[in-house]
Amino acid sequence: MSKSLENEYKKYIQMETPDLWDRIEKDLVKSKKRAVRRWTAFGSLAAAALLVVVVLPLISGGSKSAETSVEMCAVDQSAGTMREETAEGELLITIEVTITEMNVAEGGVNWYTGITREGEGYTFTIPEDCMIMDESGQSTFIQEGGCYSIDLQEEAGKYRAVSISEIKD
């Protein structure tokens, strides 16, 4: 007896297909968390940039007599490096480096080393909450030999990465 191809084929496909919904749903939650973290990081950076560019100059310019006025200085030391000092005396450095060493464990943390085009070396840690972005704003991984623009914060003579963006040639 002849059977309907369409009906029998659909039944066969239904029988052969695994149920993947639970797995997809779990991955969806992870994906949403990653997106929230990404936007939180972007938001923090944007807020910090706004503070530096708009608010702080207004404060320092508007109350010259105040002893507590914040003085920011930005000095271009080389083409790819910028240093800023905050009111609290913390040093913020933006560097463009090629990663030469990764995951060198010392003192219970992993250290990374990068070298600028001018040959200046920086060793720093990357905290778990530090986002590493590619040029399209997607989360990515740091790789040896890769080029990155990194915001470093100095604390007690040691550097900690605040944000990392991949630079493609």
């Binding site: 496909i13 297909t17 149920d19 993947l20 919904w21 997809i24 969806l28």
Partner: peptide
């Protein structure tokens, strides 16, 4: 709009089609 019911509807309609 972030409503995963939309994805579920598409999943239910097309899981067999895509998996194959």
């Amino acid at each position: 709009m972030g409503d995963k019911e939309g994805l579920r509807e598409i999943y239910q309609a097309y899981i067999g089609y895509i998996y194959s």
